[in-house]
């Protein structure tokens, strides 16, 4: 595939139609042909270029509703860029994303109501206390004060942040920041959670804590997308996985389909290629 001609701004974005995307139209002919279930997240031909570098080179992906979906890839594969375009943080040069059938870039306010996101590498309003930050996230979404208050208490308790609720986020540890950001993403009970590197710098206890919450969320019908480069974690936790490298999807499907009998890690290395030469460091044995 030739690199996409990148248009400027959002004028060129709509030139790419949404191939094969089923229009959400539950009323027509539902009796004879049951409409295919609307995916929680559908990416269609997403592409983004930064200067000379093509970060994302035409990614299309369906994330089924109710799945626990892992996006894995080496550093610089375009995971964060893809998820940013899928969640309305970064305008794609081509393509678009649908959240439960709502076009993120056509009807952003509607789409954003449906999802909670945990972006990687962005700051928080860290001069607020943890409690204030999560309340702020709720109030920004126009939620009722009393609902916000009770949910904040529940979330802080569930994430084991209760005793630091009044501490300023700037004084939090890295793991606590991840957790408070996750709480901010959960406050409005979204149908889809998009989490970029949720387990980075999180201690094992907190990680197990977060996993428990996410698994419960999926069990009750929510959809979770996590990006990670910890294969082991993805293999144990997710039911679906997409392998992304150099801005393309190399493989996608259920975890068992993708790993095809091998471990996910071996399969990943085979797909992405490289990294198998271990020679040339003989001096390392000369101590």
């Amino acid at each position: 595939m030739t690199p996409p001609e990148i248009g400027r701004g959002y004028a060129g974005r709509m030139s790419d139609p949404s191939p094969g995307y089923p229009a959400p139209n539950p009323s027509s002919g539902a009796a004879e042909y049951p409409a295919p279930p609307v995916p929680a997240l559908a990416l269609r031909g997403l592409a983004k270029r930064f200067g000379d570098k093509i970060a994302v080179n035409g990614i299309s992906l369906d994330v089924p509703a109710g799945s626990f979906y892992g996006v894995v890839g080496p550093n610089g594969a375009g995971k964060t860029t893809t998820l940013s375009m899928a969640t309305g943080l970064l305008r794609p040069d081509f393509g678009t994303a649908f959240i439960h059938g709502v076009d993120v870039w056509e009807r952003p306010l509607e789409a954003k109501k449906l999802m909670g996101i945990l972006p990687d590498g962005v700051r928080l309003f860290d001069r607020l206390s943890g409690e204030q930050l999560v309340s702020y996230a709720g109030l920004l979404r126009g939620m009722d004060r009393s609902v916000v208050q009770s949910r904040v208490q529940d979330l802080l308790a569930a994430l084991d942040l209760g005793k630091d609720a009044g501490t300023l986020v700037v004084d939090y540890s890295a793991g606590m920041r991840k957790k408070i950001a996750l709480a901010s993403a959960l406050i409005h009970a979204p149908r889809l959670l998009v989490l970029d590197e949720p387990f980075e710098s999180v201690d094992p206890v907190s990680a197990a804590n977060i996993r428990g919450i996410l698994e419960q969320y999926v069990a009750s019908g929510g959809t979770v997308i996590v990006s990670s480069h910890v294969m082991d974690l993805v293999q144990r936790m997710c039911d679906h996985v997409a392998v992304v490298s150099a801005g393309r999807v190399l493989a996608a499907g259920t975890v068992d389909e993708v790993r095809a009998g091998a471990t996910l890690e071996d399969r990943f290395v085979a797909l992405v290629g490289g990294g198998m030469h271990t020679g040339g460091l003989e001096w390392l044995r000369t101590f």
Partner: peptide
């Protein structure tokens, strides 16, 4: 370097 931890219940200006 950290400050002491403080309990919930201070909505402040919110």
């Amino acid at each position: 370097t950290g400050g002491g931890s403080r309990k919930a219940g201070r909505a402040g200006l919110f």
